[in-house]
């Protein structure tokens, strides 16, 4: 049984999501908005892995990889939010351009 949707479509959707996430990271100045862009990029990459994994229904290597990417993304966002809280307590702002010194 062939996969329903051709793989190019998945790859193009993932490329669009990746580019939008990159643009979000570059343009937004709020740290949490930047984190949202990172989540978008991780999802785009996962979509690629899952799309290739449908041609490998026995070993499912792509889906296993995507599963571990999700786990690492969850850990990353938890640690990043803890760091953002710490930075906010120190600088009283989360604007990335105003956080310019290592030690006040």
């Amino acid at each position: 049984m062939q996969p329903i949707v051709p793989i190019h479509y998945f790859l193009i959707v993932a490329a669009v999501l990746f580019s939008i996430g990159l643009a979000v990271i570059i343009t937004k100045r709020n740290t949490i908005a930047v984190l949202i862009g990172i989540e978008l990029i991780l999802n785009a990459v996962n979509l690629n892995l899952v799309a290739f994994s449908q041609y490998d229904p026995v070993r499912l290597a792509g889906q296993m990889f995507a599963l571990f990417v999700i786990v690492v993304a969850a850990a990353e966002s938890a640690v990043a939010l803890a760091i953002i809280l710490k930075v906010y307590r120190h600088f009283q702002t989360t604007d990335l351009d105003k956080i310019s010194s290592m030690k006040k």
Partner: peptide
């Protein structure tokens, strides 16, 4: 967006994911 991506996972045959 995450809901949409999850639905795309289903279309790619990855229900658990």
């Amino acid at each position: 967006a995450l809901l949409g991506v999850a639905a795309l996972y289903v279309l790619a045959g990855a229900d658990f994911l």
